[in-house]
Simulated scan of single mutants.
Amino acid sequence: MTDLDATDRKILRALAEDATQSAGALGRRFGLSQPAAWRRIRRLEEAGVLAGRRLTLDQEALGFGVSVFLGVKLATKGQVSLDAFERAVTAIPEVQTVQHVLGIYDYRLRIVARDLPDFERVLRRRIMTLPGVGHVEANVMLSEERRPGPLG
């Protein structure tokens, strides 16, 4: 675990809100020079605290108005089954995330679709034909709030 001071935490919160902020802008905001802010950001990256910066696409603006969380229970277990399922499911463009989880289901998928009929097509033609799929349960997302992670 990396020791973070109050300024590190402020920088992390600011970057969580908007990862495009420059070191100069962060420095001005938190009373640091641009080089000092850059060194802190670099140290956080090297320590693995900052593991990258991501671009967030607006799925609805791109025509994908439905997001569904799908619990998938495999019919057969074993490394071969897991590997085959993971290879096949990651090749489906509508599948945004694949999470191997512990609990009732073996996997949790986040799927985007244009509408419910489009989701049904993805479910029937792509998901249900994957190797090893036994049981699925769908939860349609109604709304989403983004909450930054705990920084103490």
Rank of each mutant, 00 (worst) to 15 (best):
D3T: 11
A6K: 06
D8A: 04
K10G: 10
L15G: 08
D18I: 05
L26K: 06
F30E: 01
G31C: 09
G31R: 02
L32H: 12
S33F: 06
S33H: 07
R40C: 09
R40A: 11
R40E: 09
I41N: 03
I41H: 10
E45R: 13
E46T: 09
E46C: 03
A51Y: 02
R54M: 09
D58C: 02
A61L: 09
L62G: 02
G63D: 02
G65Q: 07
S67P: 01
V72A: 03
L74D: 02
A75P: 08
G78S: 08
Q79A: 14
V80Q: 14
V80H: 13
S81I: 06
L82Y: 15
D83H: 13
V89G: 11
A91G: 06
P93L: 01
T97D: 04
V98H: 01
V101H: 05
Y105C: 01
R108Y: 04
L109E: 01
L109C: 00
L109F: 00
L109V: 06
R110Q: 05
R114S: 00
R114Y: 02
V122I: 13
L123C: 09
R125K: 09
M128E: 13
T129H: 03
P131K: 12
G132V: 09
G132P: 09
E137K: 13
A138C: 15
V140G: 14
M141L: 14
M141G: 15
S143I: 13
E144Y: 02
E144M: 06
E145D: 15
R146Y: 11
R147H: 12
P148C: 04
P148H: 11
G149Y: 03
G152P: 13
